[in-house]
Design a protein around this nucleic acid. Structure first.
Lengths: 204, 204
DNA sequence: GGACCCTGACTGAACGACCAGTCAACTCAC
DNA sequence: GTGAGTTGACTGGTCGTTCAGTCAGGGTCC
């Protein structure tokens, strides 16, 4: 919508800074991220960053989960619109393979996960946050399974949907790490094939 | 326990520093590791660290893989001595669960893996090194499987041993991340049970 | 055996680069 | 005019790296 006050009130600086920060973190890595870098991406002075966030540390912590949060919300919305459980599952797999879909920055998403994990090692708050993000994602895989069993697309006699989702998710995490790190053997396509194959065998 | 008498030609400073460095990295994290910290653990001046290593960066890179290398060699030796393939597999699982065995510092091993991954994201040399370490480990799982099929402890009609080892290894990686990060649901015991269960179903 | 020198491990003060966080001053919409 | 938003120079501290110098042991020559 058009506004006469075209500059400031419209622009959400808080969010803008979070986006810039997660951009810089994916590019440079958490440890090499400087306030100056974030300010430059925003086209703003370094002082302003500290005007909106009480410290660099807090900003980085928020930025780490921000991008993942956005990704989850987008994906959950997308999945809900698909009528077929098989399509939903296929989409989940596609979205879990780093670098498979060029239109998504899945490599970036995964790079942020790595940084979250490292930080969670020594920051209990981040550890809690990670668990929440992870649980939520595994939960939505489980829901796809339950949905498919309900619509009879998947056989209903298998393992508990939550356990299945958890094991399947763990395997995808492990594979994604290899793909993300440019493993010569584990290419995006290979990971996709493996996941599809395992899904067919375990889920339906 | 170290006396200030300087005469040990036996003492390998290079190795001593690598051990101190990986100790500090596991305690403080790669990003928070200072040369001063490493020097203190060695009971030595900061200058000496740079006397043995051309830069902090090189030292850290070496230290990251050093501990994992030691772990692998120790484990490979141990496995070779066990006559039963089932015992070997059980041991591999035990050794893959962070925090399960108090006598091993498995949490430390895994914390170093995380740091290796993050560094490998932007350091091609480290990426190559990681792939080598990973491949070696998966390979030794595959060998356990092949060994068990040879001794008829495992059924021989299953999937290709290398593929199996790779999928199984990936799942353990994913689960280990959760355990390592103090997930409330994924405890060491639960991971162990899941791995044992999956191993029984997939391998034998 | 002792005087001398050489080597190299080791020290720690000093340097300089870098950077998070502060703050006084400025802008501009209301 | 007020105050939220914004600037950018500045401060204080940290830390990697350098380097001139110390010191102990061993070799060599007399």
């Amino acid at each position: 919508m058009s506004t006469k006050t075209r500059q400031k009130p419209q622009r959400d600086r808080h969010q803008e800074i979070l986006e810039a920060a997660s951009r810089v973190i994916t590019d440079r890595g958490l440890a090499e991220t400087r306030i100056q870098d974030i300010a430059e991406v925003c086209g703003v002075s370094p002082g302003l960053i500290l005007y909106y966030f009480e410290s660099k540390d807090r900003l980085l912590a928020e930025a780490l989960t921000y991008a993942n949060d956005q990704f989850y919300l987008r994906t959950a919305r997308e999945l809900r619109k698909m009528p077929s459980a098989k399509d939903r599952l296929a989409r989940v797999i596609e979205l879990s393979v780093p670098g498979l879909l060029p239109e998504y920055d899945l490599l970036d998403e995964w790079a942020l996960w790595l940084e979250i994990w490292v930080r969670a090692l020594r920051d209990p708050d981040m550890a809690k946050e990670r668990e929440m993000l992870d649980r939520r994602w595994v939960q939505s895989i489980a829901e796809v399974i339950r949905y498919g069993r309900q619509t009879s697309e998947f056989p209903a006699d298998g393992t508990d949907a939550d356990d299945l989702a958890m094991q399947f998710g763990a395997m995808m995490d492990g594979l994604a790490i290899q793909v993300m790190l440019n493993d010569t053997v584990m290419t995006p396509k290979r990971m996709f094939d493996i996941c599809t194959d395992v899904a067919t065998r375990l889920i339906g």
